[in-house]
Amino acid sequence: MVKINGENLDIAGRTLFEYLLDAGYDTGRIAVEKNGDIVPKAAYEKTVFADGDIVEVVSFVGGG
């Protein structure tokens, strides 16, 4: 299982890029952290999920 934004998903073995595309994220407007480290945009395609990965996908929202 891979935990993405708090949700467990059965996507070990797939790439981050595939996941983001399938889920419908605008990759130009997000940032990704895997196991506490930033994943640079250039590394999305070669980042393969492993069982137990914890991933955060974030974007900007209104705030003070």
Binding site: V58, S59, V61, G64
Partner: peptide, 12 residues
């Protein structure tokens, strides 16, 4: 200023 939050694919 802006905040950073978990991205939501539903709101485009």
């Amino acid at each position: 200023t802006l905040a950073v939050r978990r991205a939501n694919t539903k709101e485009q």
